[in-house]
């Protein structure tokens, strides 16, 4: 299929983009990497009047370390994150998740800002943002604001963004040296959206888990922070009874849905399997922040 006719403008600044959004509201769409939008346009699921191409706005791309914060510009591609030494060093969870995003061709074009703004709960970056307690940096007509990822995702495809906002960057607190991470997904074919996925961070010390964060992919309308399971694990050794309690807690934490191939009950079961596996992997290594030689 061919998309319906639309106008196209390439903007050079956030202000210019905001002007178009302010004028047209949701009749305009921002396009950056286009990896989701192009498909919906071609299927005529989306028929905007104007595409505002923000991909050439200077300063919206790149990865910077600022004290204890890593800022990733919205236009930074998945591939740039995957290959970034800075990310590997300070945010190993992102380095673990990046290769699991779709296929190389998609990672070369798709951007982290697009993924987070689209807020597909089956996508990797939203769950990573929630696990890492990132902050979303937003620019709107009235100025800028910062929103915690843990409150940014409101419902299915629904975020704190209004039709006249632009997501400009994401700020991640540097992962402390002793904190390890694991990112696991179950997808039937490499590169597919996961049936369910899990980002786990924890600081193991003398057999106990501290500072546990668990964020699930594909287990609810938004990336799901599994608070009760986190509490069940926090400060404990992951003995069988503790793991059982944590898995049981997932029943409260998650709201998995059913789709064509997987029922909610199966997703819930798989979320528990992933929890076991992630904890085991974390204790046997996982990825840790490291100094570059």
């Amino acid at each position: 299929m061919k998309p319906s006719a639309f106008d196209y403008v390439r903007v050079a600044s956030v202000e210019e983009a905001l002007a178009h959004l302010t004028e047209l509201g949701d009749r305009a769409r921002l396009i950056a990497g286009g990896q989701t939008l192009m498909a919906t346009l071609n299927m005529r699921l989306s028929a905007p009047e104007l595409l505002v191409d923000i991909s050439r706005i200077p300063g919206l791309s790149g990865i910077r370390l600022n004290g204890s914060t890593v800022t990733i510009g919205a236009l930074t591609t998945h591939r740039e994150i995957e290959r970034s030494p800075l990310v590997a060093q300070h945010l190993p969870l992102l380095a673990q998740a990046a290769p699991q995003i779709a296929h190389a061709a998609i990672r070369n074009s798709g951007t982290i800002g697009g993924s987070v703004a689209f807020a597909d709960p089956a996508a990797e970056w939203p769950a990573c943002c929630v696990a890492l307690d990132a902050t979303i940096v937003i620019q709107g007509p009235a100025g800028g604001r910062r929103v915690r990822a843990r409150t940014f995702f409101r419902n299915l495809y629904e975020t704190d963004l209004t039709p006249t906002d632009i997501l400009v960057a994401i700020e991640f607190p540097v992962t402390p040296l002793a904190r390890r991470s694991v990112f696991l997904e179950l997808s039937r074919r490499r590169g597919d959206y996961a049936i369910v996925g899990l980002a786990l961070l924890a600081r193991p010390a003398e057999g106990l888990l501290h500072e546990v964060a668990l964020a699930y992919v594909g287990a609810g309308p938004v990336p799901m922070l599994a608070r009760q399971a986190m509490a069940a694990l926090e400060g404990r050794a992951p003995a069988a009874s503790v793991m059982q309690a944590a898995r049981a807690a997932l029943a409260h934490d998650l709201q998995p849905g059913s789709d064509l191939y997987t029922s909610a009950a199966t997703r819930q079961h798989l979320a528990g399997v992933l929890l076991d596996r992630a904890v085991t992997q974390l204790l046997s290594g996982g990825a840790a922040p490291h100094a570059i030689a």
Binding site: Y261, T266, H269, L270
Partner: peptide, 13 residues
């Protein structure tokens, strides 16, 4: 033979 069908056969879901 989807994962779900196999899990069902195993009585896991």
């Amino acid at each position: 033979f989807t994962p779900e069908r196999i899990l069902a056969a195993l009585g896991r879901v």
